[in-house]
């Protein structure tokens, strides 16, 4: 079984074309199934997540792409009557992060997440970004100030907010709030960052900002992004996975998926014939 999945990865890797031929793995899903009660939402998904690359998950509503994304930081643990089956190996540790003995808090310390709707906390801009550091017990003021500034710079928000770090986060615009949430996630130095349709609540201008940002962030952190918007997937990602009804239909480099997809279903979806 394991050999087979490894084999299917190598086929994908061989077909990648213009992207650098050897790229390390950050994580990989192996025969991952997921259940809400008796309903199976993911059906034996196998997929690599390449290190320092952006991987986009696309597919029609209800295809399981968000469910899949939320397996990576064990968000489903917060809901009763859910069950994982299979594994997500996280590298370099080579540990299955879905194993019961792995503490979900530890997982979330290393895998950050940005949500569909900006969800800043009812705190100041500074405290929002410092939140992750504070829950990890960081108390040193200058250390906190440094890390907050770095995170805000990385999220391209520093220029806009440096003069009012003490004002409430709710006073920011929607796009700024979303960049604040990205800064919040970046502040703790995650190895993998999950984006769940991060621009679906934003106007086109703010969307363009966030897309630029995601494109630049891949130098620092591996990114997995769910998007409804295929142009967005094409713009920001290096790899694209197409999912349908809980199954992974196709995974390849983004260029191939959009210009020469293997599967008829993928082609129908990206050309807008359904979904």
């Amino acid at each position: 079984m394991v050999d087979q999945t490894d084999h299917s990865f190598s086929v994908d890797v061989a077909s990648r074309g213009d992207i650098d031929s050897v790229q390390g793995l950050k994580a990989e899903a192996r025969n991952l199934s997921f259940f809400y009660g008796a309903v199976q939402a993911l059906k034996s998904v196998n997929m690599p997540v390449y290190d320092s690359r952006v991987t986009a998950l696309i597919g029609p509503s209800g295809c399981g792409k968000s469910t899949f994304l939320r397996c990576f930081n064990r968000m489903h643990d917060l809901t009763d009557h859910t069950r994982y089956d299979g594994e997500i190996l996280f590298h370099p540790d080579n540990v299955n992060i879905l194993r019961k003995s792995v503490d979900p808090i530890e997982v979330r310390m290393r895998i950050g997440m940005v949500f569909q709707k900006p969800n800043p906390f009812p705190k100041s801009i500074f405290e929002n970004v410092a939140y992750g550091l504070r829950v990890r017990g960081e108390k040193n003021r200058s250390e906190l100030a440094d890390r907050v500034e770095t995170a805000l710079r990385d999220a391209s928000l520093w220029e806009e907010v440096s003069g009012r770090l003490d004002s409430m986060a709710f006073n920011l615009s929607g796009g700024q709030q979303q960049r604040l949430c990205i800064a919040r996630a970046l502040a703790t130095g995650p190895e993998l960052l999950l984006f769940d349709e991060p621009t679906s609540a934003l106007d086109p201008n703010a969307t363009a900002n966030i897309e630029d940002l995601i494109h630049r962030l891949r130098e620092k952190v591996t990114i997995l992004i769910v998007t409804h918007n295929m142009q967005q997937a094409a713009r920001v990602s290096d790899y694209t996975a197409f999912m349908y009804l809980g199954e992974l239909i196709e995974f390849s480099d983004t260029n191939t998926v959009f210009t020469n997809p293997n599967s008829k279903q993928t082609e129908d979806y990206i050309t807008g014939r359904y979904g």
Partner: peptide, 22 residues
Amino acid sequence: PASMREGSYAMGATRMQTSLRV
């Protein structure tokens, strides 16, 4: 809203930290 709690949990906060700080 649940989204605010999720935001806190996603940062690696415990249930107690989420309750008291968010």
